[in-house]
Design a protein around this nucleic acid. Sequence first.
DNA 1: ATGTGTTCCTGTCCGC
DNA 2: TGCGGACAGGAACACA
Length: 280
Amino acid sequence: MPELPEVETVRRGLLPVMEGRRILAATVNRPDLRWPLPERLAGRIAGRRVERLRRRSKYILADLEGEETLLLHLGMSGRMLVSGGQLGDFHHVVPAAQKHDHIVLEMEGNVRVTFNDARRFGMVDLVATGVAGAHRLLAGLGPEPLGNGFDEAYLASRLKGRAPVKAALLDQRIVAGLGNIYVSEALFRAGIAPTRTAGSLNGAEVARLVPAIRIVLEEAIAAGGSSLRDYRQADGGLGYFQHSFRVYDRAGQPCPACGTPVARLVQQGRSSFWCPACQG
DNA sequence: ATGTGTTCCTGTCCGC
DNA sequence: TGCGGACAGGAACACA
């Protein structure tokens, strides 16, 4: 579910209730998500202050005092939900536990942060802060698409081979943070068919693709992400970038540029949406 | 080294 | 309504 814009939106929502605040208590309701959770996780994070809340690709990193970092990935259906707080008096209703509430953090400030993940493709680990970047899940990630390390020269150097450009952009080693929605949207904006071979793109096409990726991600962040099914912001609210989709999930509907029906195809087992007329 | 297909899991929607 | 199948914002893993 969550791609870079959704994860960044969640991070921003968690910032005021987590950064600088202490985790007073933690509850862990099952031993594993996608993988086994760290041993004694609840006890190891309880009582510690969150010094920084960062994002790398689709991961959220909570640097805890004592040089350990809580590493979170939301998978397809993960949510980080904030409850309590503002009401602040003894009348305020503690929300009932929901199905799939796997980890609950009681934060300083009378706020609860709950990690809920129906499909359990999410991941959580606890690592030494100094070597977090070398964690097996982070070590191979490519550059942040909104950062300085992502430009035309870099992307051109990595778009090689016969795999479809769709697959290349989904490859987190090439660029970190894109997912199924934003790859389709970026390729539409760049006028490149998802079926094109990565190595077949010419310089002009790569030069269009870089800003197309950047702009669509920035617009999606500004819209609070895209809510199709599971995704919610930290406050439970919906993102609204789904209303700005030009091709994703719009099979059969007219291309916003030329009116040709948007096509859907399956690549690597995943849907791609595109305009056969605009994207060459 | 590449490229592709499968797998994990739950929930929802659509057609019969 | 019930039931089966398709499909879903990810990505590691196993194999050609």
